[in-house]
Design a protein around this nucleic acid. Structure first.
Lengths: 225, 225
DNA sequence: ATCATGGATCATGTATACAGAGCACAGTAG
DNA sequence: CTACTGTGCTCTGTATACATGATCCATGAT
């Protein structure tokens, strides 16, 4: 009986809490700056506070949520300056990843990118922002992962996760989606041709365009708290 | 009564466990690959297992220790390839940090570097490897911190922490210490003159030299387990 | 009326207790 | 002698219960 049908058995345990918190933060169910009440989370997921606390600790270590002793946990809130800093770090690290990835890029990787691209179209048309976000991440990491640099990928993953709540805002605008998809199509072509230099250029423009849009969307509402 | 004498009050609590585990890992008391038994740690520090588990979770999120469900926690073990990957990431990020730091560099920052430099000499002569390691980190981060890029600094801090157990090996060799101090002196001079380009060059050579030495020291003992 | 002080309340922090999964060792069958 | 299976132990995982620190509001004094 060798895993008859993949049988997605419930993962060990508070792994589930971690996954759920991640999802909720990335998809924006938990707005940046909002507090995470341990007991509320525990009750809503049907577990005790202990596994909830541990999941929060991991997210704390990753920087997804911030913590003050005896005060509690809060979803990390990013300023435009911090988003800009993340963009810059990504620029440096993703260039390295792409340079290392290109020679290793297999046809399956291209296929995975193409699949994710199609999925983004579908989800975008259906207005399913969260599915679109997921496909977007898959698209980019299909390329980056070919670098084989595990440590670098882990860092990039964290940077993406940190910025994801804001990406949802961006993907909500139809015009932004359109531009982004054009860039993704160009990136896919560059990957097919193993054109490293061109891929790096497209990615730089892609990131810059994203943050410029965000600057527009987030610049006005100066709401604190 | 405005904080009369800094009064290093005992930190809230398991903060202490976290600090102690960090220290033990960085200084090599806990060898890479060794398992962390929750109860043993708890008993030796006089607390229960709960705060120990939470401290471990944070380190897990940071990548300092790795975790397998129902198996436990192990101090992360790095291969030479991974150390090389870390060196490369540091190269990319530290160049950025130095470029951003130079214009902001204040005389106090230079003084802090000089102080750490002296301390390294003193600790090195006294054979106090762990004090030397601490001063070494202070020296470099006195420069890097002036960049003001908090997210980038956090990443660099984690990369340094991850590699620290191996740095101890390196600093144990008198010849390596000598070369390193020469490079540090040169870096200090470059900082005084606000010579960005030169500082970046020295840092690149410094990192490269470190890993070359490690390759020599770690190459031979192919001990598994 | 404003500010300070005290206590009530709530959320977090920690310990203890119990449940469950892995692993090792031993015993037995082939 | 080897391979397999079963049992027991150990360490991890989770729940419950209690302790502590922080915030907020009400009360009283200036």
């Amino acid at each position: 009986m060798s895993t008859p049908k993949k049988f997605t058995r419930p993962p060990t345990a508070q792994q589930a809490v971690l996954a759920e918190l991640r999802r909720a933060i990335i998809e924006g169910d938990l707005a940046p700056g909002s507090q995470l009440i341990q007991e509320a989370v525990a009750e809503s997921l049907g577990v005790s506070r202990v596994p909830v606390r541990e999941a929060m600790r991991i997210l704390q270590g990753e920087g997804q949520i911030s913590y003050t002793p005896h005060r509690g946990y809060f979803v990390t809130e990013l300023s435009l300056d911090e988003l800009e800093e993340i963009r810059r770090i990504r620029e440096l690290l993703e260039e390295e990843a792409v340079v290392k990835a290109m020679p290793n890029l297999r046809d399956e990787d291209i296929a995975a990118m193409a699949e994710a691209y199609e999925e983004m179209d579908r989800a975008g048309a259906a207005g399913d922002i969260s599915a679109m976000n997921a496909a977007h991440t898959r698209f980019h990491f299909a390329l980056l992962s070919a670098s084989g640099m595990t440590r670098l990928l882990k860092i990039l993953r964290q940077l993406w996760d940190a910025a994801d709540p804001y990406r949802a805002v961006y993907h909500g605008e139809a015009a932004s989606r359109r531009t982004a998809q054009d860039q993704h199509a160009a990136l896919l072509r560059a990957a097919e041709q193993r054109d490293t230099e061109r891929a790096v250029k497209i990615l730089d423009a892609h990131r810059q365009q994203t943050i410029d849009r965000l600057r527009g969307s987030l610049g006005k509402p100066a709401g604190q708290s």
